[in-house]
Design a protein around this nucleic acid. Structure first.
Lengths: 215, 215
DNA sequence: TTAAATTTTGTTGTATACAACAGATAATAT
DNA sequence: ATATTATCTGTTGTATACAACAAAATTTAA
């Protein structure tokens, strides 16, 4: 990435801070705070914030401040509803566009992962796994939709996985099963497995949200 | 709508001009042009343009100008792919949330429409018909997705219907069939009919695009 | 004539000053 | 003490000036 305007720099920085929950969900920040924190003038900051509002990560309260979007029960429900609609579709429809080698790599990665300690990069691997299916669709609406979802999903994952690290193993097993089906070109089965995976993941998130461990 | 900032006013105005093809697809405009045309200073104009870029209606070419997005074969294909995925889903899943009376009103409206002359407001009715299904889903991702799609769809419709006004009758007949199925609570059938409707509509758009009548 | 270097022009990128306004706080009247 | 009014404070909304830069036009050299 050669060219980086201040606008995109501010956007990347703020978005990262939101997705990784450095700014707590529900909290209020101001443009001036960001201005001094990032050492960037208001104009690029504002443009970044406007975009983030568009993406649903913040809400601008006129004359009040910038509210970091909450992650509540309803939001999680919407999120998973969309994923349950889109992911089986992209797997079934575009799974065959992904080179077998990519599946093999994933497969290997996952088996390695199951026999080792959990690390910080696991989030990215998971994200990458889902993202690839959207990208090969070559449909910019699908890709953008995934982009929109992924930051919220990451926030959800961070807020939940912290409590239950054992979940990673279960998730990886399920990813493994999906990849396995893909390697055999059993797209319907892979789609079905992704539905099961998402449903279980949803129930787990719901449980954690309702337990009130975070808010 | 009581409160209207200049930002939203600029956004509404520019978006309307794009969707109704007052700014031709592919043409290039500048911030200064918009500034003088709308009599609004650059800052709100920029914020509006940024949002429109985010929504895919324009592309900002640094140091060059603002390019009104094109509507080509690929774009139309993506558009219909998403609609074919989402609309049957929302009809099947949320059709029952719409009061019967609303269906009856639609039904009446459509039959009136078939026995009268075509008017300008037909676009809005069509839009409204599709939109209601998304709105009752109460899923902000779905609603926003529809919002995103609808402006592109409107552009497509305007560019195609101009040539073939007879298409309106066919479309209305299909809408009628869908509403009919909904009135009988035959959601699966309604979903199936919407798929047929969209597929035919897609083929029609493709044909018109390929004929090169517009570019 | 042609190629290269230079200047000009037009556009967006960025910084900043000021206006508008909502909400909180303080002051006042009853 | 309480309700009402007025003031103050903090924040975003808007306007505008200037910087940076890319591309086009012009000039210059060979």
């Amino acid at each position: 990435m050669a060219k980086q305007t201040l606008k995109t720099k501010a956007y990347d920085e703020i978005r990262k801070n939101i997705t990784y929950c450095n700014y707590a969900p529900g909290s209020i920040i101001t443009e001036e705070f960001l201005q001094t924190e990032l050492n960037i003038s208001r104009t690029p900051i504002r443009e970044a914030i406007n975009r983030l509002e568009q993406e649903g990560l913040v809400t601008i309260k006129p004359k009040k401040g910038i509210v970091i979007s909450n992650l509540n029960f309803e939001e999680a429900g919407m999120l998973y509803e969309i994923r349950l609609l889109l992911e089986p579709y992209v797997i079934r429809t575009y799974g065959n566009r992904i080179p077998q080698q990519t599946y093999v790599d994933f497969y290997k990665h996952f088996t390695d992962l199951l026999s080792a300690e959990a690390s910080e990069s696991d989030f990215d691997i998971d994200d990458n796994f889902h993202q690839i299916f959207y990208n090969v669709s070559q449909n910019s609406y699908l890709m953008e939709m995934n982009n929109r979802l992924s930051s919220q999903i990451t926030r959800l994952r961070i807020l939940t996985r912290i409590q239950e690290k054992s979940d990673l193993i279960q998730t990886t097993h399920e990813h493994l099963a999906i990849v396995n089906a893909c390697l055999q070109s059993s797209w319907d089965q892979a789609a079905e497995l992704s539905i099961e995976h998402l449903k279980r993941s949803r129930e787990n998130s719901f449980k954690l949200i309702l337990s009130g461990k975070f808010k």
